[in-house]
Design a protein around this nucleic acid. Structure first.
Length: 812
RNA sequence: GCCCGGGUGGCGAAAUCGGCAGACGCAAAGGACUUAAAAUCCUUUUCACCGCAAGGUGAGUGCGGGUUCAAUUCCCGCCCCGGGCACCA
């Protein structure tokens, strides 16, 4: 057969058409094979796939295809994170309904997906904006409501007075509205829905032990910090006069005799009683000023409330202040300020002239007098009544117990993580399935009335609490309990709800009686490999873990964690710069397929760097891959059916060895570290060797090499692999063939190359049979022509010999 | 500020357990083929010095120290870059 030029358009189009209706990516339902669930994070349907997506999917696809070839029953699904703000913005800008815009985008992106031949089981496709899916969001919500895991409380939202609407955090720029850059955003308290993720904080922490082998260390670390468990003490300072308690949380109760004031958060509920009208206005201004601001840019500020409170340990009076740096959302929203032993308190008290009273001395030093900065380490407690002389740690333990005995406090644990606020004052999301009845209060929508369907014709103006409030047919309902007139909840759910359990739905995507059949979950879960961007290390992955635990507790699944293994791939940047729409440098997937071909684009992103690192898209780099695939294709086509092969000879053994070495390398990488960049390098080396020895290799090993090449390229470049497979007489899809097994004997070199060093410097190499004894190695090394001159006239002080590796002579 | 990563040729990178630094690719230069170009194939390519040449010598993995026969790899200190968290009491 004469050599054929590599025409990616022609090859990819041909197989694209043939594969159109094929069903070989379907996961089997009742399979005797071992299962493998590989999942890539589902995309937001923005309208186009870019090279970042291609990287994510190319990693997952390579693994899926490899696992199929290794005989696994693979589940490899794809779906759409289809709710969210951009659809509403598009509606405002182009007067296009969010649903229509979203479905249009999905169709366009799916086309691109197919063009890249990612091996998805499209029968399991899930779109989170469909009632068939989101009804189960509502169902889970009702289950959580039943168990007290969903509750309502007042919480602050960003409010733009000009738009007269709630803003998402990303719509607040430098404390101002994104559409009115001169309008500062206010904070308004609205009744909103929360999920009690804090109930699971300890489980989320503890179960990380199960993930330690399969999840990246840094993701677990980020989650650990995010949950932020800290042990301390709660204690009540009682207001002088009324006796009303102000509860504070501290991790340093051992410093409490040094507390020179109490500071409450500006939105602390007690301020209603403590403050006069002017004070309340000041507090409100403080809250607004912090809207979505970087705390580092805000100076510490506060004012005296005019009240004092009594220190429960010392009995001393301390003034009560309001301070902007005290967070309502952490601990109790109130602190005791110990300026001598806390940097923030020191800064605040220094500013307002509040006394600094040291009560902890360093173990090997005296107590500070008029300190210039806070001493924050543990030490020996002083001037603290009965606790004086104890070490910080001991004092903390005993003082906590004391608080409990006396009833003014207790040992307490607080978390940085807060309950998950899921209310969004938005249209394009899952309606929260409750009804507000003037008589019966908050009533859940009965299960048999699910789904609460999002109305289609809604005017989205960008003003008002929620667009749904203006849809009378949606809002006005009868109370399920009393039958009287009632109002439907108009908040919708955070879209992180959608992505917290979608991977379960893939296992049973068309079920209309349950979110899924537990038997199917038991078969497929846990996910064997989850792959996505590290930017989801915290929110999505913590929420998913929380949902899994909640679902386990309501009895629909058995597993504790969603994913056994997680892989976080690095970002893709373009020609050295971060890709962004505004810069106009987004590398689109369709352009890649058109210009370079899907195979080349996929292989480029795998080749340019190991998958966990950042990749820089470079046009010339992609051209290099295209060149390589052309080399493979031409080599294959000109050697298939060739008749002038030489007789079997020495070159055969060498090329076979190289072939099996390559296979060994790739197989081992797929099973461990996924450095596909070096896998592809090793295939390139093999191809280079085939080019160099092409005239000398006999028919049989050349045929083996070509067939094996098509098999080992199949996970990376399915189109051209398939074409070569077919040309070489192979039947069926190449990625359904058995993965070629390497023969360790064939991969082995005949002789070991042993490096000879003198004083650690390379001076020669000798080739010896594997396992040659140290003494013989030394003798051979000493006799080597290249080495001799460096030993002549020198005294050998020491010799190190490592069999099959090296000999090092230390000389004087 | 705290906590993680990382720093290797002109560039992306490799060296998987302390044992040959720079595999593979890009870019560049030279050659072959061609009327010519593209494409393709082959060769060279860390730096400095010596040599007409084959070749040789030395230095070199952010900087400074240390451990070791041997360090890109381990330890200590510092500089720079990236990421996460950031008044979390």
């Amino acid at each position: 057969m004469p050599e054929k030029p590599y025409d990616h358009h022609q090859i990819e189009l041909k197989w694209h058409e043939r594969w159109q209706d094929a069903d070989f990516y379907k996961a089997e339902e009742n399979s005797a094979k071992p299962k493998f669930y590989v999942l890539e994070m589902l995309p937001y349907p923005s309208g186009t796939l870019h090279i970042g997506h291609i990287r994510n999917y190319s990693i997952g696809d390579a693994l899926a295809r490899y696992k199929w070839m290794r005989g696994f029953n693979v589940l490899h699904p794809m779906g759409w994170d289809a709710f969210g703000l951009p659809a509403e913005n598009a509606a405002i800008q182009n007067n296009r309904p969010p649903r229509e815009w979203t479905l249009h985008n999905i169709a366009a992106m799916k086309k691109t997906h197919r063009r890249f031949a990612f091996s998805y089981d499209w029968d399991r496709e899930v779109s989170t904006c469909e009632p068939e899916y989101y009804r189960w969001n509502q169902w889970f919500f009702l289950k959580m409501l039943e168990r007290g895991l969903a509750y309502r409380k007042k919480a602050l939202v960003n409010w733009c007075p000009k738009c007269a609407t709630v803003l998402a955090n990303e719509q607040v720029v430098d404390g101002c509205c994104w559409r009115h850059e001169d309008t500062p955003v206010e904070q308004r308290a609205l009744e909103q829905w929360f999920l009690k993720i804090t109930d699971y904080a300890d489980q989320l922490l503890e179960d990380m032990a199960q993930l330690e082998r399969g999840w990246p260390e840094r993701v677990l670390l980020m989650q650990r910090n995010w949950i932020g468990r800290s042990e301390g003490t709660e204690a009540d300072f009682h207001l002088d006069g009324s006796g009303e308690p102000i509860r504070v949380f501290t991790t340093r109760v051992d410093t409490i005799y040094g507390a020179t004031c109490v500071i409450v958060a500006p939105e602390h509920p007690l301020n209603e009683k403590l403050l006069d009208a002017a004070g309340k206005a000041r507090a409100k201004a403080m809250v607004d000023a912090q809207a979505n601001r970087d705390p580092a840019d805000i100076d510490k500020e506060g004012f005296f409330t005019g009240h004092d409170a009594v220190n429960p340990y010392s009995g001393e009076k301390a003034p009560v202040w309001v301070g902007n740096f005290v967070l309502m959302g952490y601990g109790t929203g109130a602190i005791m300020a110990v300026p001598a032993h806390d940097e923030r308190d020191f800064e605040f008290c220094a500013k307002y002239g509040i006394p600094v009273r040291p009560v902890i001395r360093p173990v090997d030093d005296v107590l500070a007098v008029n300190p210039k900065q806070a001493f924050t380490d543990d030490g020996v407690v002083e001037n603290s009544g009965p606790w004086s002389g104890q070490h910080s740690e001991e004092a903390r333990r005993k003082m906590s117990l004391f608080a409990e005995e006396k009833g003014f406090g207790k040992a307490a644990i607080t978390y940085r993580i807060k309950d998950w606020g899921i209310s969004r004052q938005r249209y394009w999301g899952t309606p929260i399935p409750v009804i507000h009845c003037p008589k019966d209060g908050v009533i859940p929508v009965p299960e048999n009335q699910l789904p609460v369907v999002l109305p289609e014709r809604v005017e989205i103006t960008g003003s008002g609490r929620s667009p749904l409030e203006n849809v009378p047919a949606f809002v006005n309902v009868t109370c399920p309990k009393c039958g009287g007139a009632a109002k439907r909840e108009t908040d919708t759910m955070d879209t992180f709800i959608d992505s917290s359990w979608y991977f379960y739905r893939y296992c049973d995507p068309h079920n209309d009686r349950m979110p899924f059949d537990p038997v199917k979950i038991a078969y497929w879960f846990e996910i064997d490999q989850y792959i996505g961007g590290v930017e989801h290390a915290i929110l999505h992955l913590i929420y998913s873990r929380f949902f899994t635990k909640m679902m386990r507790d309501i009895g629909v699944i058995q597993n504790n964690e969603p994913a056994r293994r997680l892989f976080t791939q690095g970002m893709v940047i373009a020609e050295g710069a971060k890709m962004s729409k505004s810069k106009g440098n987004v590398v689109g997937a369709d352009m890649l397929a058109e210009k370079f071909g899907a195979d080349t684009a996929r292989m480029f992103v795998l080749f340019a760097a190991p998958p966990e690192k950042e990749v820089d898209w470079r046009q010339e780099g992609a051209e290099g891959i295209s060149r390589f695939l052309g080399r493979v294709y031409r080599l294959a086509t000109r050697n298939l059916g060739r008749t002038d092969f030489p007789a079997p000879n020495d070159a055969d053994r060498a090329i076979r060895r190289k072939l099996h070495q390559t296979l060994k390398k790739i197989t081992e990488d797929f099973e461990s570290r996924w450095h596909f960049n070096t896998c592809i390098s090793s295939i390139m080396e093999l191809v280079n060797a085939l080019y160099a020895e092409e005239a000398n290799i006999s028919a049989e090993p050349m045929g083996e090499a070509v067939r094996t090449l098509s098999l080992m390229l199949a996970p990376f470049a399915p189109y051209v692999s398939q074409e070569i497979w077919e040309e070489s007489g192979g039947q069926g899809p190449v990625f359904r063939q058995a993965w070629p097994v390497f023969d360790p004997e064939l991969a082995k070199e005949d002789l070991a190359e042993v490096v000879v060093q003198v004083n650690g410097k390379l001076r020669g190499r000798i080739h010896v049979p594997f396992g040659t004894a140290k003494e013989e190695l030394e003798a051979l090394a000493r006799a080597d022509e290249k080495v001799k001159p460096f030993l002549d006239g020198k005294q050998i002080v020491k010799t190190i010999a490592v069999p099959d590796k090296l000999v090092n002579f230390v000389v004087k």
